[in-house]
Design a protein around this nucleic acid. Structure first.
Lengths: 231, 231
DNA sequence: ACCTGAACACCGTTCAAGT
DNA sequence: ACCTGAACACCGTTCAAGT
């Protein structure tokens, strides 16, 4: 039972020396893969290190702390969002499409939305490239500088918030979420009409609409609002 | 050094029996106080129990798990947001004021914004009362039912997201945040003009505007967007 | 019914010691 | 310079045992 492992088998498979040398890229990539498979909570320093065949302490040679690791993961994900060439004639469509792509890419990496809201101002290279494009598109629409700056904020915040809302669902197992939603619907339909007349009256509309329909509505509200400042 | 504590002093001060009997109200209130003083991360089952002079296991007689505790805290906070009587003539102002009050109240309880985005659909009594009021105001504006339902979503999401963004800042000590912001500004001003022409050109506007000014802009965008559906 | 201590299986981060 | 094991001070939740 306690036969020593022969040297040529030691640290096989998961060995850091055997598989891949420790590097920032390997750490961030491993962390991202772990998050994709098991969610953000699984991305602990210990688990990431374990996947790389080392101990948690070794990671601190490459990242200051766990939130720095999170921010590096975020920029990698932002890099997957396509960045269009600004076309002044299609500014509304282009901004909407970026927002849609962002929600889609974030949905492919459940957990990253939790990171983005904790990051005061994403400044990775991919975040900067995205910011440059959004600002250029808004500017080409003939909006005043200050409106451009504030609108860029709003246009980042909204898809982030929607992705975050959706990823909260991903935290739970699918059946638990479905159960919760039908519980909510049942609960709403039993509310006293005297105290909550509007909720009861609007119940069908409140439950209607897939996620995408609601998201598209929000995008359209923002676009119509922004248009009112366009010259 | 190891003199036994006399019986009449045992469990004094923090004693559950002496101070307050264990109850759902006591648990949620203690948890909220702890969050206000030390942030959401401090609200562990163990810390809350410690403040009540008991062990973590005892809390499980009152709440299913930590996230149920979080949701109870959330409804208590939502209860602090003033709910207006719907006045059809002032629907824009009323909706804006609710959004402002929500951001203000959430700012008084840093950490609660993190809870709200993890809660699929807040259904506490205070959340329901707020929802009823928002739906009634939107309906009185003459918006179609489906627009009312979707707009209520959007009008909850936006202040939540803004509060969350601001509370991320509260996680860090104040000087660290200030340092980070000026680091960002310095970094932005050093970006190559060829690669990031729009960021560099808009730098003053990007850095301008207090939080409230940006928040008010977003509210105005949403209101102007919604108006385009009003009959 | 309500409460408890102890246990289980985890955390992030630091640090002295090794190569 | 890079890496490591061990330690420190924590977690949420379960469970058998007590009152």
């Amino acid at each position: 039972m306690s036969v020593p492992v022969p040297p040529w088998q030691q640290r096989a498979g998961r060995s850091r020396a055997g598989r891949q040398p420790l590097s920032l890229e390997a750490i961030v990539g491993t962390a991202l893969g772990l998050m994709d498979r098991e969610g953000l909570d699984a991305v602990s320093m210990r688990r990431v290190a374990q996947e790389l065949g080392t101990g948690a302490a070794s990671l601190y040679a490459y990242v200051r702390n766990k939130s720095e690791l999170h921010e590096l993961m975020l920029d990698l994900v932002i890099g997957e969002i396509p960045v269009p060439e600004p076309d002044p004639a299609r500014w509304r469509d282009q901004l909407k499409q970026i927002a849609r792509d962002q929600v889609r890419v974030f949905a492919e990496h459940p957990g990253i939305a939790q990171v983005v809201m904790r990051t005061p101002a994403p400044t990775g290279p991919n975040a900067l490239a995205m910011m440059e494009a959004v600002l250029a598109i808004l500017r080409s629409a003939g909006l005043p500088d200050r409106v451009v700056a504030f609108a860029a904020d709003l246009l980042a915040l909204y898809p982030n918030a929607v992705a975050l809302e959706r990823s909260a669902a991903f935290g739970l197992p699918a059946e638990e979420l479905g159960e919760r939603m039908s519980q909510v619907e049942r609960y709403f339909s039993q509310l006293p009409r005297e105290t909550f007349p509007t909720i009861v009256a609007l119940l069908p509309s409140l439950m209607a609409g897939e996620g995408d329909e609601r998201f598209e509505f929000g995008l359209e509200v923002i676009m119509r609002g922004l248009e009112s400042w366009a010259g």
